[in-house]
Nucleic acid binder design. Structure first.
Lengths: 150, 150
DNA sequence: GGCGCTTCGATGCAGGTGCATTGTTGGCCT
DNA sequence: AGGCCAACAATGCACCTGCATCGAAGCGCC
């Protein structure tokens, strides 16, 4: 049961909140766009692949359901992502020994290479979007605030 | 011509930058997801429609090329968006008097009503994502930082 | 063992998005 | 006026995403 005050705040959040919200969405979108643009300009795979490659590289051979949780993406989405990536030769999958429902995903050499190849483009976007515009202290503050949001 | 130092920073930005970046993308995605979920739960139109409706409501009858700029979305995307919204009866379009290439988009009553109907769902998402987690000062700080990014 | 429930991952279908390109009109210059 | 380039909006095509659902395998219980 919500109090009247809570309801009021729900319906009409202070202007600053809406402003922050709007900028959050905008900044997130712009940032995403910036990476995609860089990646595409360099003829590299799409953004999502990077996250998967990095995660598998860090964690070692992984099961899709775990990747899904770690990456925070939808199950069907990951499923098709892995299909494409396997077709491109960046990962290998095998049925999970000990649980025939599941799979184990592992990086191929090409996958490792692709991840490395993608980093410069990724870094360019980060540089242009964040590093160039905020100083160290501001980046720390931003990271702290965003951690509480997400 | 880039200095070696700049290149180095491009290739290997400090960890805090990458962290902030990662959280920016994540927070943006989560926020977007939250609204979409609320809207869909309430059987309301998709997120993008809200922005268009709001913009046209604020600015008055507008031309697509302006909306495109104000909203920061792609031309083809807006074109199809407007097609769908018109089919749903939320906006009317007419050819622009004085420039037969262009159009004028205006809200219908249904459009105004839809915008209002969407707000509570939108507000719920804002409340849960931002308002509940950051206090006033933090929201101000966040808005300030994000303004510099986007 | 057999039954029902849950977990894991794949997939059919409808719809949205990105990219390139087109058609139309306006504006400008000669 | 005529020719040329730029601006505006639409669209064909391939691809991606969301949703619901499915089938297969594990798990617990009797």
């Amino acid at each position: 049961m919500r109090t009247a005050a809570t309801l009021l705040r729900m319906i009409k959040p202070a202007a600053i909140t809406v402003l922050a919200w709007d900028r959050l969405l905008t900044a997130g979108r712009e940032a995403t766009r910036a990476v995609r643009r860089e990646l595409r300009r360099a003829g590299l795979p799409p953004l999502e692949w990077y996250d998967v490659l990095l995660e598998v590289e860090r964690r070692g051979p992984s099961r899709p359901r775990d990747l899904q949780r770690w990456l925070g993406i939808e199950q069907y989405n990951l499923s098709r992502l892995l299909t494409r990536m396997e077709r491109a030769g960046l990962v290998h999958t095998m049925t999970c020994p000990g649980d025939a429902r599941g799979q184990i995903v592992q990086l191929s050499d090409a996958g490792r290479a692709a991840r490395q190849a993608m980093w410069p483009a990724y870094a360019t976007a980060i540089h242009g979007t964040l590093e160039q515009r905020l100083d160290d202290a501001e980046r720390i503050a931003l990271a702290g605030l965003l951690a509480r949001v997400a």
